[in-house]
């Protein structure tokens, strides 16, 4: 009896961790895409999630049918992604990585400032797709929306993988991220590729924002913490490695939920970061990071 109660408990923590982790994972994936194509760590990635969620909320409140609001919201986020590239990243091409990071921090402050004027400063939610009645699995209660998030994550991953490996454009992105010089030589327009990764990342962010808002709620400043956690997830998995980003995100989410459930809810974020530090000390390039390459 006690053992099964324990299993139920652990199962509950697992579902909690996977749901939260899926959000981190998708933010991490957005980071990775842009990083691979341009070596920019885009700290405004969380703002794409916020834009998708908040735009949907407000467009729906303005009377649009929910699906239309969602599609428009994704488009809005993509416009923001493209604009970020066109007006802030592209003009600074060749600047130090750290300068580019500061630019993306500036962009996130700008987008947050814009959101607080266009939207408002309150919390908002969206209706869950399949009701709020939890499904009981092995004694653990799971929200149907959690399954939607996990399924959505899977679709995105598979879609992205197919796009990257099966389409000409996707392969051009891969080529450009592996070796921009060689890619240019074989006729790939690298700036267009980089712009495309901003577009895909902002799309990804917006989709995730829309999927998780029924669970996590949203507000104009929801992006900051997501960028922080997403960045940690990327590094945990190993930067530049898409499966690593997903793995890092999920593990980070699990570390938090098991930390909160088994050790201390007060220090759960600390536990997650201690695990991250421990992993980095054992594997200085993250879980799935490649071999160390050092320029001389």
């Amino acid at each position: 009896m006690r053992a099964s109660a324990m299993t139920t408990e652990l199962l509950q923590f697992t579902f909690s961790g996977l749901t939260v982790g899926a959000v981190y994972a998708s933010v991490a994936l957005g980071f990775t895409l842009i990083y691979n194509a341009s070596h920019v760590v885009n700290l405004a990635q969380g703002e794409f999630v916020m834009l998708g969620a908040m735009s949907t909320v407000f467009l729906a409140a303005a009377g649009l049918p929910l699906p239309v609001a969602m599609i428009l919201a994704v488009l809005i986020s993509m416009v923001a992604g493209l604009a970020l590239h066109r007006f802030a990243i592209a003009p600074a091409r060749g600047a130090d990585p750290i300068a580019l990071i500061i630019i993306t921090i500036g962009a996130s402050i700008f987008l947050r400032g814009l959101a607080q004027i266009v939207f408002d400063k309150r919390f908002h939610s969206l209706p869950p797709w399949f009701g709020a009645e939890p499904i009981v699995i092995g004694g653990a209660a799971v929200l149907p929306q959690s399954l939607v998030v996990l399924a959505g994550m899977l679709v995105v991953l598979v879609g992205l993988w197919l796009f990257m490996t099966r389409t000409l454009f996707g392969r051009a992105i891969l080529a450009a991220s592996n070796n921009p010089m060689a890619a240019t030589l074989v006729g790939i327009n690298v700036p267009v590729i980089v712009a495309a990764t901003f577009l895909i990342s902002s799309l990804l962010g917006a989709v995730v924002g829309i999927l998780v808002t029924p669970i996590t709620l949203t507000s104009y400043d929801a992006g900051t913490i997501l960028a922080l956690k997403g960045f940690a997830a990327v590094m945990l998995g190993g930067i530049g490695n898409p499966p690593g980003a997903v793995l890092g995100g999920l593990l980070l989410g699990l570390a938090e939920s098991f930390g909160a459930g088994l050790i201390s809810s007060q220090y759960k974020d600390a536990i997650a970061f201690v695990i991250l530090l421990a992993v980095l000390l054992l594997r200085p390039r993250g879980l799935l990071g490649g071999a160390a390459l050092e320029r001389v």
Binding site: I103, G106, A107, S108, I109, F110, G113, Q116, I117
Partner: peptide, 11 residues
């Protein structure tokens, strides 16, 4: 508008 302007100045 101060945050928007701060972000713009930084960029």
């Amino acid at each position: 508008y101060e945050h928007m302007i701060l972000g713009l100045v930084m960029m």
